[in-house]
């Protein structure tokens, strides 16, 4: 066999190609690399109809999943028999919850701007003739006084932070419901440096009842001073307590 290639009378495959020399060169290279076939990817066989049908069937099934979607992936459909599930009919997600402080302040802010800011100032510092609410002893010490004043108004001289004011305030907070009233008072008692607590709906109800039993006439300065000592019976809300943003009622998220 060796003689065949070394025979100089036999022509090489191409001009200038010495097959024996080429092969000898390749003894250094990997024999495995030499015997490899060339990679070809130009197969142009037509795709079988079965492949197309198969893919079409897959798309149909997947499409069914997409379009049935949430109904198909509804846990309720695959719950085993006799399994008790509690579920709200109609899929109601429940009330929007917020910390009490945030909800009540938001409520009160709008009401303050509407009813009180004209006289007592947007920053609570009052105007000439109208007492300030910032640091006022009628506001800070006790929620009862400020609420009664808001509900009934005050007439005659009144001493606020050492200065005497002698004007007439009409009842401004009449017609507000308990949540709105509590919100307004909370806002007044927690803004501009005042630090109070959040008035609860029970407290608001208590004061409304007291105010109704009083008859609705304006307070005098002396009555107001007396009321400062009179604490409310009901308790205020804690600031982080979660309440329903719409109604101000406490919602215990651990229940239900």
């Amino acid at each position: 066999m060796v003689q065949k290639y070394a025979d100089s009378t036999k022509p090489d495959l191409e001009e200038g190609t010495n097959v024996a020399a080429t092969h000898a060169r390749l003894t250094d290279a990997s024999a495995a690399a030499e015997r490899e076939k060339v990679l070809r990817e130009n197969g142009m066989e037509p795709v079988s109809l079965w492949v197309v049908l198969g893919c079409f069937a897959v798309v149909l099934i997947a499409g069914g999943v997409f379009f049935k979607g949430g109904n198909y992936f509804n846990n309720a459909a695959f719950v085993a028999a006799n399994y008790q599930q509690g579920e709200e009919p109609g899929g109601d997600t429940g009330p929007v919850l917020e910390p009490a402080f945030k909800a009540y302040m938001a409520k009160g802010k709008g009401l303050y701007a509407q009813k009180c800011a004209a006289c007592h100032g947007g920053d609570g510092n009052g105007n000439p003739g109208f007492p300030p609410l910032t640091g006022s002893e009628y506001v800070v010490d006790n929620a009862r006084v400020v609420t009664m004043i808001a509900l009934n108004g005050v007439a005659g001289p009144i001493v606020v932070k050492g200065k005497t004011y002698n004007s007439n305030m009409a009842a401004q907070a009449v017609g507000l419901n308990e949540y709105e009233l509590a919100g307004l008072i909370t806002y007044i008692r927690n803004s501009w440096g005042n630090e109070g607590d959040v008035m609860s709906i029970e407290q608001a109800a208590e004061i409304l009842a007291d105010s109704d039993s009083r008859g609705g006439s304006q307070l005098s300065g002396d009555e107001a001073i007396e009321m400062i000592q009179d604490k409310l019976k009901a308790a205020p809300l804690s600031k982080e307590q979660l309440v329903d943003k719409k109604t101000g009622i406490i919602v215990d998220a651990t229940e239900g």
Binding site: L97, E98, P99, E240, L242, A253
Partner: peptide
């Protein structure tokens, strides 16, 4: 800014 996230942080 929902309450549940605030509660979780607390």
């Amino acid at each position: 800014e929902d309450a549940q996230t605030d509660r979780r942080r607390e």
